[in-house]
Design a protein around this nucleic acid. Structure first.
Lengths: 124, 124
DNA sequence: ATAATATATGAACAGTTGCTCAATCGATCA
DNA sequence: TGATCGATTGAGCAACTGTTCATATATTAT
């Protein structure tokens, strides 16, 4: 996690590399943008959360329903819903004793589908 | 990580929920598919790997070039390239003392862009 | 051969993650 | 009011992750 502060020493590669590296450096998005992107994918990088998101894409559901569907404790589901809410992937509304969760982003399924394309191509 | 084996007890929610939950359950992809999807996103869930992938999308580069570009040790970069290779996101070729890495999937940028769409919409 | 360079790899370590468990909060109902 | 149900929250923990460091391997140059 901790980043080295002293610049890495350059290897003896050709000057050609030098130009390419400089070009790539200029084309790269901002450090912060790439960090945020990683943070988003980190949220997708857990099968429990993937399942929850996929389920909520089908229908709005309360916590206990999700827990039953995924065969998990309410507590575990609640913890994960919290994570999903923090990054604005889901929203919720209270109805009596229940709290209903639903998707708060229409691109989730598109992102998933892109990922599935990669997976299906791996089996070659 | 460890999954509970005894089924979660059902809450006293309406019978309506029961139907919805059953419907959602039927529509959900296979457990394994969702697991694989999470594994893929887990790889994207690290800013170092995101940077490497983004860089390699611009140009083929050797390990020391990537290390210099990202101001990281060769070792750290090499470890991450190994991870990326294991999931078929990058490929490599040796040229003398150097090993050149390049992208092995054309959808990477598309997946990134989908993610960026979500991020940019968060700032509301 | 030896030395030098580029990369890979394994152990170790700190930091993080996702779950369980217990306690708590919020709303409803007797 | 107290009892109950659904949901949330915090502590604690085992498992995992990403880096560093030291070492090993592979290729080239001397």
């Amino acid at each position: 996690m901790a980043r080295k502060m002293e610049p890495i020493e350059r290897c003896d590669c050709d000057v050609i590399h030098d130009d390419i590296v400089r070009q790539v450096k200029n084309k790269m998005p901002q450090e912060e943008t790439l960090y945020d992107l990683a943070e988003l994918f980190k949220v997708f990088g857990d099968s429990t959360r993937i399942k929850i998101l996929w389920a909520l894409d089908e229908a709005e559901m309360c916590v206990c329903d999700i827990a039953f569907l995924l065969n998990m404790t309410q507590s575990a589901v609640s913890h994960q819903l919290r994570v999903l809410k923090q990054v604005d992937l889901v929203k919720n509304r209270r109805d009596g004793k229940n709290v209903f969760y639903s998707l708060d982003d229409e691109h989730v399924k598109q992102i998933f589908n892109q990922g599935l394309i990669h997976i299906s191509e791996e089996d070659n």
